[in-house]
Computed example of a mutant assay.
Amino acid sequence: MASVTGLDGVVAAETELSLVDGQNGYLVYRGYEAKELALKMSFEEVAYLLWHGELPSAEAINAFKKQWVDHRAIPTELKAVLDLLPKESEMMSVLRTAISVLGTCTRQESAWPPQFEHILANTALLPTIIAYHYRRSQGLQPVEPDPQLDHVANYLYMLTGSKPQYVHVKVLTAYFILAMEHGMNASTFAGRVVLSTQSDITSALCASIGAMKGPLHGGAPSEVLQMLDEIGTKEQAEAWLREELGAGRKLMGFGHRIYKTSDPRAEALRQLMQELASEDPWFDLAVHVEKVAVELLREYKPGRNLYVNVEFYAAAVMRAIALPTSLFTPSFTLSRIVGWTAHLLEQAGCNRIFRPQSVYVGELPASLLNRP
């Protein structure tokens, strides 16, 4: 039996949720191009699509947003636990702990199959948990959720205590939508494996968070951020990039394991930043650096077809809204939880426990080797 290390190319499930086509460069959510959704829809509307299989009507989205707001407040039992955690606790560990506590203090009459109310509650609450612990870690008073603000705007408000700029909400919403779902990635697969045992949704989400915490999966685009900081201005871009390429160093934010052509998520963020470049100098710098870098990559690495990936523009987004690097992966998580939970609902609907094979490559006892 031939082994496939890392399960590359192995089909583990059928899904109606998303199509990640790396050869042709497109990402589809339930029949819609993700980049079009990112430019036109709200976070809540795309979450509704992934969870329910269709875009909501105006009446449905209004009721849905009200449900969302109703689940934002941190339960008393959870707040007591969060207050006991050291202020310097790493945020992904805090999220894993918080989700686990929620599973013990929320009445779940039936752990199987997963209930949508619990899915919505966890998703709506995650930004509040992040903001609560972050402000405590900075010696600041936590900010209560604002029921008048949508999901993304409220997240920024709870972090800073100030109403966010429209331009920052718009571009962060687009990024979060593009980060919601991306096929059978490591964290999604981890959650589906746990749920396939008919375990509860809390255990599955803890597995997904644990996988996301690893730097090979949910690592922050901090190296891209460092690159943009070092370039600094449009005038210095070409000289800086030529020096890096001439020295044989890799340009961070270019190339992707899946996408062999332009990353559709990067395309959407580029389009949005071009429209908003006059509103924020970091958007203008990012678009310019990409253009120059792609031209230089053709010159220095002909035939490699290296394009910008979503991490490049994610860094520009995070830099523009002044999000601390410690919050990059947690922020990614509060978006990806929508995709995780959509997969958990799908897994429960056609469940079969995962049981892949392994290939033994160790030694055999002499008694077996000498058998006729």
Results as ranks from 00 to 15, higher is better:
residue 302 P to L: 03
residue 236 Q to D: 13
residue 275 E to K: 07
residue 221 P to L: 03
residue 281 P to H: 01
residue 249 R to V: 07
residue 310 V to R: 04
residue 241 L to D: 05
residue 222 S to T: 13
residue 309 N to M: 12
residue 222 S to C: 03
residue 278 S to P: 07
residue 289 V to W: 03
residue 233 T to R: 10
residue 306 L to M: 14
residue 310 V to S: 05
residue 233 T to P: 13
residue 307 Y to H: 12
residue 291 K to W: 01
residue 283 F to Q: 00
residue 236 Q to N: 14
residue 298 R to E: 14
residue 307 Y to D: 09
residue 298 R to P: 12
residue 272 L to V: 02
residue 295 E to K: 11
residue 241 L to C: 04
residue 233 T to Y: 14
residue 269 L to I: 08
residue 250 K to S: 10
residue 234 K to C: 06
residue 270 R to C: 06
residue 267 E to F: 02
residue 254 F to M: 00
residue 292 V to F: 02
residue 259 Y to I: 02
residue 238 E to F: 03
residue 301 K to L: 09
residue 227 M to S: 14
residue 247 A to V: 07
residue 257 R to V: 08
residue 222 S to N: 08
residue 294 V to P: 05
residue 249 R to I: 10
residue 246 G to H: 06
residue 229 D to Q: 14
residue 314 A to V: 06
residue 227 M to A: 10
residue 280 D to K: 00
residue 287 V to T: 01
residue 313 Y to T: 00
residue 280 D to P: 08
residue 237 A to L: 05
residue 289 V to I: 14
residue 222 S to Y: 10
residue 311 E to A: 03
residue 261 T to E: 05
residue 254 F to D: 03
residue 254 F to E: 00
residue 303 G to R: 07
residue 264 P to M: 00
residue 238 E to P: 12
residue 261 T to S: 15
residue 283 F to K: 02
residue 233 T to E: 12
residue 298 R to G: 09
residue 257 R to G: 02
residue 313 Y to S: 01
residue 243 E to N: 12
residue 309 N to I: 11
residue 223 E to I: 08
residue 269 L to K: 01
residue 304 R to P: 13
residue 280 D to C: 15
residue 285 L to Y: 11
residue 225 L to C: 12
residue 260 K to R: 15
residue 283 F to D: 07
residue 263 D to V: 05
residue 283 F to G: 04
residue 256 H to P: 13
residue 263 D to K: 01
residue 240 W to R: 02
residue 251 L to A: 07
residue 221 P to R: 00
residue 222 S to E: 10
